[in-house]
Amino acid sequence: MNVKEVAEKLGLKVISGENGLDREVKGGYVSDLLSDVMGSANAGELWITLQTHKNVMAIASLKDLAAIILVKGFEPDPDMEEQSNAEDIPVLNSDLDTFTITGRLFQLLNP
């Protein structure tokens, strides 16, 4: 499944990085601690977080993550959005909280 299909199925809003919507999704990782993501996330994963600054994109790019999902309607800072477009790594958001969006993503990826 690619990022676009996940976004459609979970009703996520695509905020930036549209050119990366065809990235393949291999799983998910949930954390708001950047070093935890750096140490433990894997390439192709969707990262669910409430962090909205540019360093999120630096990590997403270095780790080859598929996309970022911001929870509870959080919006990326302007420089995060810019970086998302530059790297073609989508930033999506949802009005749902972390627990709910994670549960739905898990179900979608592990039917």
Partner: peptide, 15 residues
Amino acid sequence: EMGFGAGMGLPNIKN
């Protein structure tokens, strides 16, 4: 507040 400061950086380097 930015999500740094978990004390995981040096252990990540070690690993």
